[in-house]
Design a protein around this nucleic acid. Structure first.
Lengths: 153, 153
DNA sequence: ATTTTTGCAGTAATTTGTTCGAAATAAAAT
DNA sequence: ATTTTATTTCGAACAAATTACTGCAAAAAT
């Protein structure tokens, strides 16, 4: 059905670093003309290798300079309890990521807020109102050493 | 100096969901013509609100279906020890994110690998060779509930 | 060996991005 | 209130990019 070769990998590598590059320039980097590059990109989109194209914004400029990882333990682990929790989590825009994890806690949330008082407000008035949350542990981010959306391919 | 209004926010909101939308369509959504939208985007890029445009790839399709968070504690906390550690971390492509955190551990790494044996290989042959690492704790991701690059604006 | 398929080059058509002067709107000053 | 100034938008013209189409050549399959 589908498979990707070295040229496809090069294209993906480029696009996940900068998706605004035009096909002509990308083609010349790969010593090709626009047609094969164009067709390969369309195929990679169709086959789901490329999921979407997005703009990455500056957190601090958008007043979301504080990152907190919040570990969450549920009270019970019944089937529908978890799915209700998930529904509530998805609805909260401050939660930018949510993982179901193995270990001491059930979920790990990545939360973006403006400052400490916004975080307090978030925990007090939003997170804590979610049913069936047992206890939570907040891990505060002091510095972001590395943050890439590009996969190592 | 610079400031953004409601229209700018709408533009940013759109672009961080889908940056491949063309200006004409974006303009009609905002009941504007292309010129103001075009100029606003260019200004938002110049002023650093928009950092970059990227393609997001499918992890599983790229054989990076396993996510692990790895908490790292350093042996010592001398000034140059940390910066050497940072240099080594940045060089490892499996590490997609690295945060300096408060709490029991010093750093939290987000690692993408193909499977458990690749992770073992990563820890044994790459992570453990980094100088001054005290101990580590691996938190395995069983499921990804939510994963957005879009800020809540 | 010949048919079929696949991938690439080149060109043309179409769409999109960019620039510019004029008009409209908003803000500041009289 | 009225004029002046600055800012923003519109619409049209131009430039550049994407998309579609045709044909050729190299692999792959029959």
């Amino acid at each position: 059905m589908e498979n990707i070769d070295k040229i496809d990998l090069q294209i993906l590598k480029q696009l996940q670093e900068n998706s605004n590059i035009n096909i002509k320039e990308l083609a010349s980097k790969l010593f090709l003309t626009v047609t094969p590059v164009y067709e390969r990109i369309k195929r990679l989109e169709r086959d789901g290798y490329i999921m979407k194209y997005v703009a990455l914004l500056d957190k601090k400029k958008m007043n979301l300079g504080m990152t907190v990882f919040c570990n969450v333990r549920l009270k019970e682990h019944a089937k529908n309890v978890g799915s209700n929790f998930v529904k509530d989590i998805v609805a909260l825009p401050e939660i930018i990521e949510c993982y179901n994890i193995a270990g001491d806690y059930d979920f790990m949330l990545k939360i973006l807020v403006e400052d400490m008082s916004s975080y307090q407000d978030f925990v007090m008035n939003k997170l804590s109102t979610i049913e069936n949350i047992g206890n939570t542990q907040s891990v505060f981010v002091m510095g972001e050493i590395k943050h890439s959306t590009a996969l190592a391919i």
